[in-house]
Amino acid sequence: MDEITSSSESPAGAGTSDDAGAPRRDRANRSAALLATLVAVPVTVAVAGFTFAKLTPDAPAAEPGPAATSAGPRSTAPVEMAAPRLAERPATVCRALTSQLPSTVRDLAQRPVTAGPEQNAAYGDPALTIACGGAEPEPGDTDDIWVVNKVCWYAAEGPDATVLTTLDRETAVRVTVPRTYGAALQWVSPISDVVIASVPSGGDAPGGCTG
C-alpha cells in the first residue's frame, strides 16, 4: 500500500530555526523601543516646560517698599486755632482773604480748623497756619523784613516754626511755617498773591518794606 503524506504537515524540525530567532528579535525590538522612550521623555518634558513658560504671563514685579524718606500718614483732623473777635471791618477783610485761599499751598492740602474758618486756615501735617486779624508788629531789625510778591513780611524765628506777619496791610495776616518745611519765605509766595488781591494796603510801611 502506498503511504500518503499530507502536504500540510511540516517536516520534523522545519520550524526550529524560526522559533529560536523570534525571541531574540522581540528582545531587540523592546530594547530599541525602551531606548527611544528614555530619550523622548526628557525631550517632551523640556518642550512642555518651555511651552508652559512661554504661555505663563510674566509675574508682576514686586512693588518697591516705601523709601526711608517717604512721607508717612498725614492727619486731616481739624487744626486747633484761636479765633479772637474781630471788629466789623477787619472781619470783612479776613472773610475776603479766606474765601480766596487755594485748596493747596504748594503740595500741602487744606485742613479744617477748630475755630474761626472765616479768619483762619491750615494746610498739611504738621500744620502750616494762616491767621487774619489783629495789629501788625513793630519790628526792631530790618534784617528780618522781607518783600515777597509785593507783600512786606516780618519773620520771627521760633524753636519749631517761623512766624511771618504782614507789615503793609490794613489788617495783619500771620503765617506760621513749621521748620520741617524748610525756608519759610517760599511758602508765603502763593499766599502773598491772595493777600494782594484781598487785603488792602494801609498806613506807613517800615523802611525795609521797599522792594
Score class of each variant (00 low, 15 high):
Met1Arg: 09
Asp2Lys: 13
Glu3Trp: 02
Glu3Leu: 10
Ser7Met: 12
Ser8Asp: 09
Ser10Phe: 05
Pro11Leu: 12
Ala14Tyr: 11
Gly15Tyr: 10
Thr16Trp: 09
Gly21His: 06
Arg25Cys: 09
Asp26Ala: 12
Arg27Met: 10
Ala28Thr: 10
Asn29Gln: 13
Asn29Val: 15
Arg30Glu: 12
Ser31Asn: 13
Ser31Lys: 02
Ala33Trp: 02
Ala33Gln: 10
Ala33Glu: 12
Leu35Arg: 06
Val39Cys: 08
Ala40Thr: 06
Pro42Gln: 06
Pro42Asp: 10
Val43Tyr: 01
Val43Phe: 04
Ala46Glu: 02
Val47Leu: 15
Gly49Pro: 03
Gly49Thr: 12
Thr51Arg: 11
Thr51Val: 13
Lys54Gln: 15
Leu55Met: 14
Pro57Ser: 08
Pro60Gly: 10
Ala61Cys: 06
Gly65Met: 15
Ala68Asp: 13
Ala68Glu: 15
Ala71Lys: 03
Gly72Val: 15
Gly72Leu: 15
Thr76Asn: 10
Pro78Glu: 04
Ala83Cys: 13
Arg85His: 09
Arg85Ile: 14
Leu86Gln: 02
Ala87Tyr: 03
Glu88Ser: 15
Arg89Phe: 13
Arg89Leu: 14
Thr92Arg: 14
Ala96His: 04
Val105Ala: 02
Ala109Ser: 12
Arg111His: 05
Arg111Ala: 06
Thr114Cys: 10
Thr114His: 04
Gly116Asp: 00
Gln119Tyr: 05
Gln119His: 07
Asn120Tyr: 02
Tyr123Gly: 04
Gly124Phe: 00
Ala127Cys: 09
Ala131Cys: 02
Ala131His: 04
Gly133Ile: 06
Ala135Lys: 05
Glu138Arg: 14
Glu138Met: 13
Pro139Phe: 02
Gly140Lys: 03
Gly140Leu: 03
Thr142Met: 13
Ile145Ser: 03
Trp146Gln: 07
Val151Gly: 00
Tyr154His: 09
Tyr154Leu: 05
Ala155Gly: 01
Glu157Gly: 07
Pro159Ile: 12
Asp168Ala: 11
Arg169Gly: 02
Arg169Asp: 01
Ala172Trp: 00
Val173Leu: 05
Arg174Cys: 05
Arg174Lys: 15
Arg174Trp: 05
Val175Ile: 09
Thr176Ile: 07
Val177Leu: 06
Pro178Leu: 05
Pro178Arg: 10
Thr180Ala: 14
Thr180Phe: 02
Gly182Val: 06
Leu185Ala: 10
Gln186Val: 13
Ser189Met: 09
Ile196Arg: 06
Ala197Tyr: 06
Val199Met: 02
Ser201Ala: 11
Ala205Gln: 03
Ala205Gly: 02
Gly208Lys: 01
Cys209Asn: 00
